[in-house]
Amino acid sequence: MIRRVLLNVMLLIAAAVILVPFLWMVSASLKRNNEVFTIPIEWVPQSFQWNNFADIWERIPLGTYLGNTVLLSVVITFLQLLTGSFAAYGFSKMRFPGRDALFFAYVATIAVPWQAYMIPQYIMMRKAGLTDTLLSLILLQAFGAFGVFLMRQYYQTIPDELCEAARMDGLTEYGIWARIILPLSKPALASLGLLTFVNTWNDYMGPFIYLTSNDLWTIQLGLRSFVGQFDADYAMMMTGSVLSILPILVIFLLGQRYFIQGIATSGMKG
């Protein structure tokens, strides 16, 4: 009995620690700026400032930022899924000399931190005239080895006999990939797709290093600009934060299962 009560108390404390930052965020996003910091704290705003959510679109070019972020996330996710699943088929369902050595090279590089080669990467992009373009970020993130790894893990669980039978029926390898393997790997595609989308949406360092023109900024850079631009406008900052998190929350609630599966099967992140 005491044990049970103790466990529930601990659970309550954990829940509070996890949720308080979110409560603060939502509460502050609905306040007047001069009501954000008070002693004692008012968790429920005196009067709800719903107009914060309308005003923010005029304070910063939020529409442009959102557009750029959506564009980057969608294109990168699509390319990662396409090239990743395509390569994974070659690595798991076909036999040819050099295949395993090549795959080993892929996996080994997952362990190399991006920070260790971001400088030469940046120089290369600059020489190619690609810095300060959205294309640079697409190239940077669309060909990850992680995607190939995750998809191959899943393809290994699909029996080879299935491909053999399809070959007997006269399907080409491309046909087998498109008509048999791809439809069967929907859960893995969903996992990889969601993880890639969220990673790109939230990415800060990539855009921070590569994008200097304001009209190319993503929502994360825009959010950060509040800190300097309106140093004291905490309410707006929180309004922006809520808006930037909402799409991720919706995606997470819809695809929670795939997030957890992606993590549990690979034990790694992008």
Binding site: F86, A105, P120
Partner: peptide, 22 residues
């Protein structure tokens, strides 16, 4: 087999592997 791997592999070599070695 190579044709399957190539689209990802080209991107991977140019964007990641070459900078790593560099």
């Amino acid at each position: 087999g190579w044709s399957f791997i190539l689209p990802n592999f080209l991107g991977f070599v140019i964007i990641s592997l070459v900078p790593m070695i560099a």
